[in-house]
Protein backbone atom coordinates (compact mmCIF):
# COMPACT_ATOMS: atom_id res chain seq x y z
CA UNK A 1 0.00 0.00 0.00
CA UNK A 2 1.48 3.31 -1.03
CA UNK A 3 -0.18 6.43 0.21
CA UNK A 4 -0.12 9.49 -2.02
CA UNK A 5 2.41 12.07 -0.93
CA UNK A 6 0.44 14.48 1.19
CA UNK A 7 3.51 15.87 2.92
CA UNK A 8 3.44 18.99 0.76
CA UNK A 9 1.60 21.70 2.60
CA UNK A 10 -1.40 22.45 0.43
CA UNK A 11 -4.58 24.38 0.52
CA UNK A 12 -7.62 22.35 1.44
CA UNK A 13 -10.21 22.54 -1.28
CA UNK A 14 -13.89 21.81 -1.20
CA UNK A 15 -14.63 18.75 -3.32
CA UNK A 16 -18.12 17.61 -4.11
CA UNK A 17 -18.95 14.33 -5.82
CA UNK A 18 -22.37 14.54 -7.45
CA UNK A 19 -24.15 11.20 -7.87
CA UNK A 20 -27.06 11.16 -10.29
CA UNK A 21 -27.27 7.54 -11.47
CA UNK A 22 -28.98 4.42 -10.18
CA UNK A 23 -26.58 1.78 -8.83
CA UNK A 24 -26.64 -1.29 -11.09
CA UNK A 25 -27.83 -0.32 -14.57
CA UNK A 26 -24.61 1.54 -15.32
CA UNK A 27 -21.16 1.58 -13.74
CA UNK A 28 -21.24 5.28 -12.75
CA UNK A 29 -22.28 4.75 -9.11
CA UNK A 30 -19.57 2.19 -8.37
CA UNK A 31 -16.94 4.23 -10.21
CA UNK A 32 -17.86 7.31 -8.22
CA UNK A 33 -17.65 5.43 -4.93
CA UNK A 34 -14.19 4.11 -5.84
CA UNK A 35 -12.95 7.56 -6.80
CA UNK A 36 -14.26 8.92 -3.49
CA UNK A 37 -12.43 6.20 -1.51
CA UNK A 38 -9.20 6.73 -3.41
CA UNK A 39 -9.51 10.50 -3.26
CA UNK A 40 -10.08 10.34 0.49
CA UNK A 41 -6.33 9.82 0.91
CA UNK A 42 -5.82 13.46 -0.05
CA UNK A 43 -6.87 15.62 2.87
CA UNK A 44 -9.59 17.65 1.26
CA UNK A 45 -12.97 18.88 2.37
CA UNK A 46 -15.12 16.24 0.72
CA UNK A 47 -18.87 15.96 0.42
CA UNK A 48 -21.17 13.74 -1.60
CA UNK A 49 -24.41 14.84 -3.21
CA UNK A 50 -27.15 12.42 -4.15
CA UNK A 51 -29.79 13.71 -6.51
CA UNK A 52 -32.01 12.44 -9.32
CA UNK A 53 -31.61 8.64 -9.64
CA UNK A 54 -28.45 8.89 -7.50
CA UNK A 55 -30.66 8.65 -4.40
CA UNK A 56 -31.30 5.00 -5.33
CA UNK A 57 -27.62 4.24 -4.57
CA UNK A 58 -28.18 4.53 -0.83
CA UNK A 59 -31.56 2.81 -0.55
CA UNK A 60 -31.37 0.19 2.22
CA UNK A 61 -32.18 -3.50 1.84
CA UNK A 62 -30.40 -4.06 -1.49
CA UNK A 63 -29.94 -7.76 -2.23
CA UNK A 64 -28.12 -8.52 -5.46
CA UNK A 65 -27.88 -12.31 -5.02
CA UNK A 66 -30.39 -12.79 -7.84
CA UNK A 67 -28.62 -10.66 -10.46
CA UNK A 68 -25.05 -11.87 -10.03
CA UNK A 69 -23.59 -8.46 -9.26
CA UNK A 70 -21.76 -7.26 -6.18
CA UNK A 71 -23.90 -5.39 -3.68
CA UNK A 72 -21.69 -2.39 -2.94
CA UNK A 73 -24.22 -0.51 -0.83
CA UNK A 74 -22.58 -1.62 2.48
CA UNK A 75 -19.45 0.27 1.40
CA UNK A 76 -21.22 3.63 1.79
CA UNK A 77 -21.33 2.81 5.50
CA UNK A 78 -17.50 2.69 5.55
CA UNK A 79 -17.21 6.27 4.29
CA UNK A 80 -17.00 7.56 7.86
CA UNK A 81 -13.80 5.56 8.37
CA UNK A 82 -12.42 7.40 5.33
CA UNK A 83 -13.40 10.70 6.92
CA UNK A 84 -16.07 11.33 4.32
CA UNK A 85 -18.84 12.47 6.60
CA UNK A 86 -21.10 14.76 4.58
CA UNK A 87 -23.68 13.09 2.39
CA UNK A 88 -26.33 15.47 1.08
CA UNK A 89 -29.48 13.90 -0.33
CA UNK A 90 -31.96 16.00 -2.28
CA UNK A 91 -35.45 15.93 -0.80
CA UNK A 92 -37.26 16.58 -4.09
CA UNK A 93 -35.41 13.70 -5.76
CA UNK A 94 -36.51 11.35 -2.96
CA UNK A 95 -40.13 12.49 -3.17
CA UNK A 96 -40.37 12.11 -6.95
CA UNK A 97 -39.26 8.49 -6.46
CA UNK A 98 -41.68 7.67 -3.67
CA UNK A 99 -38.87 7.55 -1.10
CA UNK A 100 -38.21 9.15 2.27
CA UNK A 101 -35.22 9.30 4.60
CA UNK A 102 -36.48 6.11 6.29
CA UNK A 103 -35.80 4.19 3.08
CA UNK A 104 -32.10 5.10 3.18
CA UNK A 105 -29.11 3.27 4.67
CA UNK A 106 -28.04 4.30 8.15
CA UNK A 107 -24.71 5.97 7.54
CA UNK A 108 -22.84 7.47 10.48
CA UNK A 109 -19.39 8.65 11.46
CA UNK A 110 -17.54 9.13 14.72
CA UNK A 111 -16.72 12.72 15.47
CA UNK A 112 -13.10 12.97 16.58
CA UNK A 113 -13.67 16.47 17.92
CA UNK A 114 -16.64 15.40 20.03
CA UNK A 115 -15.31 12.40 22.01
CA UNK A 116 -15.99 10.07 19.06
CA UNK A 117 -19.73 10.56 19.29
CA UNK A 118 -21.59 8.74 16.54
CA UNK A 119 -23.37 11.17 14.23
CA UNK A 120 -25.44 10.82 11.09
CA UNK A 121 -23.63 11.48 7.80
CA UNK A 122 -26.80 11.84 5.76
CA UNK A 123 -28.48 15.21 5.49
CA UNK A 124 -31.64 15.53 3.46
CA UNK A 125 -31.64 18.99 1.90
CA UNK A 126 -34.00 20.90 -0.33
CA UNK A 127 -33.06 21.71 -3.90
CA UNK A 128 -32.25 25.35 -3.16
CA UNK A 129 -29.95 24.26 -0.32
CA UNK A 130 -28.26 21.83 -2.71
CA UNK A 131 -27.82 24.68 -5.16
CA UNK A 132 -26.08 26.71 -2.47
CA UNK A 133 -23.86 23.79 -1.47
CA UNK A 134 -22.78 23.36 -5.08
CA UNK A 135 -22.04 27.07 -5.35
CA UNK A 136 -19.61 26.79 -2.41
CA UNK A 137 -17.39 24.14 -4.01
CA UNK A 138 -13.92 24.52 -5.52
CA UNK A 139 -14.18 21.27 -7.48
CA UNK A 140 -17.26 19.31 -8.55
CA UNK A 141 -17.02 15.81 -10.01
CA UNK A 142 -20.28 14.59 -11.47
CA UNK A 143 -21.14 10.95 -12.07
Amino acid sequence: MEEPDVSQPGVTKKFMYVNRRAPYGTVYALESLEVVLIGAAFDQDVSLAFLDDGVFQIVKGQDTAGIGMKNFSPTYRALGDYEVTKLYVEKESLETRGLSEDDLLEITYEDEDDDWAEKPSIHVVKRDEMTQLMAQQDVILSF
Binding site: P23, Y24, Q62, D63, A65, G66
Partner: peptide, 11 residues
Protein backbone atom coordinates in the same frame (compact mmCIF):
# COMPACT_ATOMS: atom_id res chain seq x y z
CA UNK B 1 -38.44 -8.95 -12.75
CA UNK B 2 -38.11 -9.94 -9.07
CA UNK B 3 -34.31 -10.25 -8.84
CA UNK B 4 -33.93 -6.72 -10.23
CA UNK B 5 -36.44 -5.43 -7.67
CA UNK B 6 -34.58 -7.08 -4.77
CA UNK B 7 -31.19 -5.87 -6.00
CA UNK B 8 -32.39 -2.28 -5.82
CA UNK B 9 -33.74 -2.56 -2.28
CA UNK B 10 -37.36 -2.30 -3.36
CA UNK B 11 -39.89 -4.62 -1.76
Amino acid sequence: LGPDVAARGLT
